[in-house]
Design a protein around this nucleic acid. Sequence first.
DNA 1: TTCTAATTTGCAACCCTTGTTATTTGCCAT
DNA 2: ATGGCAAATAACAAGGGTTGCAAATTAGAA
Lengths: 138, 138
Amino acid sequence: MRSPGELTTLFRDRGLKVTPQRQAVFEALYGDESHPTADVVHDRVREHMPTVSLRTVYQALNDLVELGEVQAVSVGTGAARFDPNVSGHHHFVCRDCERIDDVVASPPRLKGYTVDAAEIVFRGLCASCTAKQPTTSI
Amino acid sequence: MRSPGELTTLFRDRGLKVTPQRQAVFEALYGDESHPTADVVHDRVREHMPTVSLRTVYQALNDLVELGEVQAVSVGTGAARFDPNVSGHHHFVCRDCERIDDVVASPPRLKGYTVDAAEIVFRGLCASCTAKQPTTSI
DNA sequence: TTCTAATTTGCAACCCTTGTTATTTGCCAT
DNA sequence: ATGGCAAATAACAAGGGTTGCAAATTAGAA
Ligand SMILES: [Mn+2]
Ligand SMILES: [Mn+2]
Ligand SMILES: [Zn+2]
Ligand SMILES: [Zn+2]
């Protein structure tokens, strides 16, 4: 995710307005590595701006996801986690405290961790949806 | 997941009763590779047993998950998908129709598919939770 | 058969997220 | 600087998925 300053330009270029609420979400998420939920972002924003609604935080987060500046990480059944790091990396999900840590190395030993399982989730178009797609893929 | 017959024994051994409703869930899921939601299982069960409640289906599915006979696959934000295949395998999630296919080969080319991304999700205990665990892990 | 603990149902409640709409506001053009 | 308009906000309700609860039923051991 770009810096709050760069996001200001990006949003205006797309016809999106740069409100104080959105800027607060930018600040709350920029450089964050904790994969917070929308609710956590909301709490964080409200520390300096007590009247912001959770709905508005969701809106701002969804905008950032649509622009590709943030990724929504969905693991398990709880709330979605938001990640300003959109470069290719993986995640370790703690079954006890639900902490999510970034994992750069692809497969093996994670020092200090207890790894129960590693799931690889592929995303894209299945064979039948690929076949009926207008733009052809290999 | 074991056969419905074997599950009968397993359930009784654990002090769980084998009801017609549970047996219907066993039958509905046995050998299934479509990763159905609880709702889909419910519909399937009701074809032969119209009075079964969704609550009971959830109960049966949760029991099976707790016994390790079924895994709940959580990808994206929708409903959980249930998988009677608990051997180590991965999944392909279609971004269009949300179909989930099994993937046996770990990394590469999936013929006919359009692969946008491959996420590896590690699950277990993070470093701090591992450290405070009674039973030590490496 | 009898007894008891487990299960089923139907319902309400929960959590997370989005729809709706009246009001406010950013921001472009004047 | 001001006006006007499209976009955003806030508050609220509602939606989907899942679980909690309690009364009635039932499996299965004795
Ligand atoms: Mn991350
Ligand atoms: Mn599977
Ligand atoms: Zn942990
Ligand atoms: Zn598809």
